[in-house]
Design a protein around this nucleic acid. Structure first.
Lengths: 188, 188
DNA sequence: CCTACCGATCGGTAGG
DNA sequence: CCTACCGATCGGTAGG
């Protein structure tokens, strides 16, 4: 379901993968919509386990904190690219519902990050022209969409193995996020 | 079809919008697959009209050229966000086919852009740590995905009108692309 | 360009 | 958790 999207994956197909009959799925969930909600809630709620430990654990400077959060973001989606694909599809198919779920699960953490950015701007370590809230949205969306689709966009690299392409693109997106965030003195 | 994706849009629905019957569509196109190909070819071939004039028209410095190409990229997709949504869906549903079409229509222009980047790196105006090919892919993908979905990600901006949010996100992504590309001396 | 129809598949229900 | 079945809709064809 994650790979091809909720709407394009029939209950029969899901049942086959689980090894039961279609009607049996509708015994555990009242309908397909409820199953979709459960899958999304399960995926998004994992962020509430991952993110807190990043912020509460250590005292870090801005660059180290950037690397920790960015690494976690990239790892979360590269560990299972279907997560990214499902979220991208949901955002296009049912923007309102996903918006509500994001507000519920990850928005507090996005606010924490944009707070750090504004703090860094006050201290001069982060570029003054960064739009903190927009930056966070753009970077999350960039990681999401890159993992969801860019591994397949290998047409620009003749004959290069897919794994190598993926690594180059991920490295480049992290570099872009870093270089466009910090003041040049910190950026080195 | 562009808005909800090829697979999720039935021939009956398309027929209703055009004002004819479903069977009449299958008189003009041998099957649904052929219709999809025609829609994609039509959209991607427009790039072959837009891009050449950007590169051949004027002699520009690096920053001016960046602004021209980036502006065209953003304008192309914001003019009709359904273009971006269709491409994002196709990239997830049929990566191989889209890869071939992109190779056919827009790859030459992406090579031109990455050539300019390498040239700028030789002259010192562009950061040495930019991965030219990966940068182009990331930026195109970023524009695509941002337009396709970010306008709907307005949950971070309480009560702010959608149009204002869209502008902030587009401005921020252009700023990120610019700041992570040019050496600090050129960057202002 | 139409009406009429095809087999296949969809989400969901009845009943056990 | 199953078999059996429902109406709706899908892409596509026949025939005019």
């Amino acid at each position: 379901m994650a790979a091809r999207g909720c709407d394009a994956t029939s209950l029969s197909r899901i049942a086959d993968e689980v090894g039961i009959r279609k009607a049996s799925i509708l015994y555990h969930f009242p309908n397909k919509e409820a199953l979709r909600q459960a899958v999304l809630d399960d995926m998004l709620s994992r962020w509430n386990e991952v993110l807190p430990r990043l912020f509460l654990a250590t005292t870090q400077d801005g660059v180290a904190r950037f690397e920790a959060v960015m690494g976690e973001l990239v790892d979360f989606f590269t560990a299972d690219p279907d997560r990214a694909r499902l979220l991208v599809r949901e955002q296009m198919d049912r923007p309102r519902e996903l918006r509500e779920k994001v507000s519920q699960y990850v928005r507090p953490w996005m606010d924490v990050v944009s707070g750090y950015i504004k703090q860094g701007q006050g201290a001069g370590s982060i570029r003054a022209d960064v739009d903190a809230e927009a930056y966070v949205i753009i970077v999350v969306n960039l990681a999401l969409c890159s993992v969801a689709s860019i591994a397949q966009a290998s047409m620009l690299f003749d004959g290069e193995p897919d794994e190598s392409i993926r690594r180059r693109c991920i490295s480049e997106l992290v570099r872009m996020a870093r270089a466009s965030l910090f003041s040049e003195s910190e950026n080195g």
